[in-house]
């Protein structure tokens, strides 16, 4: 089962390696990880996407809680929440596909953030399904490379998980 885990940590050097070491030391995989400051500059939030059965996820959340620099751990599975990810896709379409690429970008509410004679760089934001759908659609027209930010997630206010 895939889980998105949000971890509030002290914003200090070395914290990232404590968190990543916790995963690598136990053979758990991190699918994506994003880190950034919060409203309190002394606190960072890490959004970690990982997979495992219930026992593994329980161990991961407990081990995270045990780290001295971790302030709070939230498994987003337990909450109604909003998830977003951004991807930058560099496409090199043939001349005849260019209009279609722009069309799809429009449909996905993406933006062209750079262009060259042969390529467009497209920014798409959304949940995982949207990003994967976009990549699938554009792939036949020639993706040179893409870069994903990894997920960020935030709980919805005043909504209880059904």
């Amino acid at each position: 089962m895939r889980h998105t885990i949000s971890v509030l940590v002290e914003n200090k050097f070395g914290v990232l390696s404590r968190v990543s070491g916790l995963f690598s030391g136990r053979g758990y995989n991190i699918e994506s990880l994003s880190v950034g400051e919060t409203i309190d500059p002394q606190v960072s939030v890490m959004t970690i996407v990982t997979t495992g059965d219930d026992q593994i996820i329980e161990q991961i959340t407990k081990q995270l809680n045990k780290l001295i620099d971790v302030i709070k751990v939230t498994d987003m599975k337990e909450l109604e929440h909003v998830e977003r990810e951004m991807v930058l896709v560099k496409v090199a379409p043939k001349q005849e596909d260019k209009a279609e690429v722009l069309n799809i970008t429009e449909i996905f509410r993406g933006r062209i953030v750079d262009s060259s004679q042969k390529t467009y760089t497209i920014e798409i934001t959304g949940d995982e399904k949207k990003i994967e759908a976009f990549i699938e659609l554009v792939k036949p027209m020639g993706i040179k490379e893409f870069v994903r930010t990894g997920k960020v997630a935030i709980a919805r206010e005043g909504v209880k998980k059904k």
């Binding site: 050097f13 070395g14 390696s17 404590r18 070491g21 030391g25 001295i68």
Partner: peptide, 14 residues
């Protein structure tokens, strides 16, 4: 040594 002992200390400081 902070990196080396990270997995075998409860906590460490530089």
């Amino acid at each position: 040594i902070v990196g080396i002992t990270r997995p075998c200390t409860k906590y460490n400081y530089l």
